[in-house]
Amino acid sequence: MTFVFVACASGNQTASQTPGKITIAYQPGINYANLLIVKQQQILEKQFPKTQFEWKELSNGAAIRDGIIANQIQVGASGPGAFLVGWDKGVGWKILVSLNYSEFWLITKNPNIKSIKDFKPGMKIGLPSLDGVQAIGLRKVAQKDLGNPTALDQNLQVIAHPLGVQSLLTGQIDAHFTTPPFEFQEIEKGGRVILKSSDIFGKTSIASLFATEKFYNQYPEFGKALYTAIVDATKLVNEKPDEAAKILSQMDNGKVSQEQYKKWLTNKAVAYGIEPRAFLKCGAFMHEIGMLNKQPKSIDELILPPLKGVGGD
């Protein structure tokens, strides 16, 4: 079975129904594989030929949130931490669709570090942002194991995932809280896992797509088309990883082989799905430690219309 993306005819769309230009931002890694397939196959460009699309890779969710606030980004992909901070501060964005539930791992090469209790002052823990899901998860564990959610905040160093790999392997940082495929690369080079996200919040949407309610209400047909494209791409990744891996390798001009992509996509730590997961758990904890002024009580407070009735927590 081959999945075929169907682009609807756009001739009957009025200017008000079609964005003139749209920027879609995401972060490094295979958590965004289903979104990257939509990009590589030009699904949206075919469906909305009058729209100018810009695809932008940024290093963390905070940068994407800033772009949304500045109206320089219309759709952004990130994790629940950066999203909830923005939601709390009135950015006005909501979840269009989730992308990925992959585990993220805290990895070290330091033989003296067996758990977070072994981090000493001056030891550096690399992660993409201070309000991202890695930082939230680390504070949750610090609260449980060290009695203080901010006990390791002075150890945190903001670093993009790819640079974090090199910094860990060369000893510039003592640990790296990262995502696939970077965590796999670190393990292959002698890194050890000392903490897994699944032990913190359970199944977590490490990556989701967000847009403001204002943008969605102005262009609902575009929002629905993007949602459908992600649903189709998610099915492709889950059911035909060979095809998905081929598309991703083509996107990289073969720098990463189809075989390598398939190995990553089918790793048991990697999972794709459209239901938003763990937003309420993250929100409750962030509210508890003062990172949020308000706490979401229902997933319905956080989602755009295409996700109504899909589920999530």
Rank of each mutant, 00 (worst) to 15 (best):
S257F: 15
D145Y: 00
G190W: 09
I194W: 01
K214N: 13
L226Y: 10
K240H: 13
K214M: 05
A175S: 09
A245Q: 12
Q250C: 01
K203C: 03
R277E: 12
N155S: 14
Q218E: 13
N267G: 00
M251P: 00
N155V: 04
G190D: 01
L146C: 02
I159F: 13
K246A: 14
Q218M: 05
N267W: 00
K263Q: 11
N217C: 05
E275H: 01
D145K: 02
P181E: 08
P276H: 07
L163M: 10
A175T: 10
F222L: 09
G147N: 00
D232A: 13
Q157N: 07
L152W: 01
Q157G: 00
F222Y: 14
L226F: 14
L169D: 08
L152Y: 03
P241N: 11
T266H: 06
D174T: 08
I274D: 00
K235V: 09
A244W: 12
E239D: 15
L168N: 03
E275C: 01
G223M: 04
L265S: 05
E221G: 07
L156W: 15
T150H: 08
G202S: 08
I274Q: 06
L209Q: 09
K263R: 15
N253W: 05
Q250L: 13
K263S: 11
P181F: 03
K268P: 10
G147C: 02
N155H: 06
L226P: 02
L169N: 15
H161R: 01
L156C: 01
V256N: 03
Q258K: 14
K262E: 09
G223D: 08
E239Q: 12
G191M: 08
P149G: 00
K203T: 11
K246S: 13
A229Q: 02
S197W: 08
D153I: 03
P220F: 08
H161P: 03
L168Q: 05
K246F: 05
I274M: 07
T212H: 06
Q185M: 11
P149W: 01
P220Y: 05
G147H: 03
T178Q: 01
G147S: 08
F222D: 09
G147L: 07
E259R: 11
L152G: 03
S198D: 10
K214L: 11
A225K: 08
L168D: 02
L236T: 13
V193P: 06
K240N: 14
L168V: 09
F210H: 11
K263T: 10
N238D: 12
I206L: 00
T228D: 15
W264C: 02
N155R: 06
E188C: 00
L248R: 09
V158E: 12
K268V: 07
L248F: 07
L226I: 04
G202W: 00
Q258H: 09
L146G: 02
L156Y: 15
K203V: 12
A211C: 12
T234N: 06
N148P: 03
D145T: 02
H176E: 11
P181G: 02
Q172R: 15
K203Y: 01
V270N: 02
D252H: 13
K246D: 10
N217K: 10
L209C: 11
K189E: 13
F201P: 09
L152V: 11
T266L: 06
I173V: 12
I194Y: 05
Y216K: 10
A225N: 04
Q185Y: 10
